[in-house]
Nucleic acid binder design. Sequence first.
DNA 1: TTGAAAGCGCTAACAG
DNA 2: CTGTTAGCGCTTTCAA
Lengths: 336, 336
Amino acid sequence: MIAKKAGVSRGTIDRVLHNRPNVNSEKRQKVLDILKEMDYAPNFAARALALKVKDIKIAALLPNWTGYFKEEVLRGIEDATQELRNYNIDILLERCKTEQPQECIKKIDALIAKGIRGIAICAKDTISIQKKLFSIVQAGIPVVTFNSDISHSGRLCFVGMDLIKEGRIGAELMSKILPAKGRTLIVCGNLEFYAHKSRVQGFCDRFQELGRQPNTYTVVETNNEHETTRQRVSEYLAGKEDIKGIYMANESVAGCVEAIKQSHIAKKIPLVCHDASSSHIDFLREGIVDFVIEQNMYRQGLEPLKMIADLLIEGKRPEKDIDYSRIHIVCAENID
Amino acid sequence: MIAKKAGVSRGTIDRVLHNRPNVNSEKRQKVLDILKEMDYAPNFAARALALKVKDIKIAALLPNWTGYFKEEVLRGIEDATQELRNYNIDILLERCKTEQPQECIKKIDALIAKGIRGIAICAKDTISIQKKLFSIVQAGIPVVTFNSDISHSGRLCFVGMDLIKEGRIGAELMSKILPAKGRTLIVCGNLEFYAHKSRVQGFCDRFQELGRQPNTYTVVETNNEHETTRQRVSEYLAGKEDIKGIYMANESVAGCVEAIKQSHIAKKIPLVCHDASSSHIDFLREGIVDFVIEQNMYRQGLEPLKMIADLLIEGKRPEKDIDYSRIHIVCAENID
DNA sequence: TTGAAAGCGCTAACAG
DNA sequence: CTGTTAGCGCTTTCAA
């Protein structure tokens, strides 16, 4: 704080730095000049230390996920918890057991009752949940959604992936590894799922840009069920449509792989899927899946909590109200 | 520091935390127990603040790079500089103008004379440079190499990429987009270059694992020269070998692209290359390059300096003596 | 072998 | 509107 030698006190410097009111505008300008001159840079460690607050609680509310999604998001939340401990911020983690909006709303109410000052949430985009979130935002509690957005909720930010882009990448990869003439099977869980619909749409968009006619691919819905997927894919592989490649927009990759193995087709079938779960990675190693398009679930656990903390501690809002993370392409040789 | 309530003073706690001597072993155990019980976690901000040192200088020494490599590494160094300012650490940046080891050695001497306490360096792996580095390491100045390692230098760590793996990824991608029967051209600058040799080796290894016979590919050296590359590639494309795909292990991708455009071949030629420079990215967008395998040059500027700082400030050595970064695959749809 | 105290740069609360 | 002051948690130094 040598800058203070410039005539004014430490406190005034601080007010200028933070654009706070109650500073004579001449002095403000003078301080700004001097700061620039000695190109002042704040010490983040010192700031963090001084900003320590008293026992703030932030909530993280998850759907009834299992497996890969759950693990990765929890890892992110855990790291956020560790990092925010330094600020005396506690993370309250809650997970829904069902898919019912009512359960979710109850959990939100319970968290509010515990005095949380912000919430990171992934839940269904239903009207009841929208309204609940909107009301707590009105009450001054910031909300950040992740993985799938919730409309009309007044949330501060959405942290997730660009589903359309994910689908486009799928088409780009598929088109490269597919013969010029060949039929592609596009498997999704349910086109009423926003996520699956978007991926399929992105896929088809890019596929057509790349010169693949709409009559060269077929979309099939399998409800995210292993057995349904196995059956439908088997039918297509045995059928007359001569499937040359399969794009899996959903999670039932294992069902699809089973169908392929049972079909005893001599030629390897190009197969592109999403999400780097350990079973998908195994399929890569095995050589049956060509590419996995990876969304960073870890980040989706970490960032929302950090955003809320930033807002609470420093009043800093995220730059954009949608935060897409970089999408990675994984093949058998760049697993890690 | 509530832990101190446990009978002993703050100082003793600190000695225990850092495994320092001069602590009664009963007390040490007691403190350890209490720490565990209240699962103590250190506050990094506070530690950083207290550890501020007085005007340490660290050097970063670069080869005579231009363009993409230079820019990205400089960006990393710049960020390290900002981050380390908080610790009163200054980064002295030097760049060689020639490729002569003598120039490099002179620069090292000059930096030593300026009182640097560590050095991050990318230079040729010559005996003269090895010896020079070894002598300064002996003198207690830590050395971290990046991008290309320097053997027998006694360096603390090497930060770079796994060249063999990069080549293997190239083969994996190429094999997927190549027809079953087809000849591949492998272009490198010079097989005496460690980097190019390793990539080519990794490529060939994986290519053979994937069932591509050695007589289905041809390796050609073009000295990293645009015009030589253009000519040689043109010859091969016009020749009788019927080239179906090209793997560029070196930087002369523009020369190769020119040759392809001039060849007026109707069918798109599968093309895989390295390093996400802006011109390579343009080729992706244009659709002439299929995949770019990206090494994170930014990280190679950032990490070495942070490692040296960690050692100097906290005595913390890197966990491994080689630090490979994750390798990304870039196609036209996941540029960013 | 231990305890006590100063200070790292910054913020917030209070006093003028 | 401005200056002063008391810490934030930790390390280090000096004294006991």
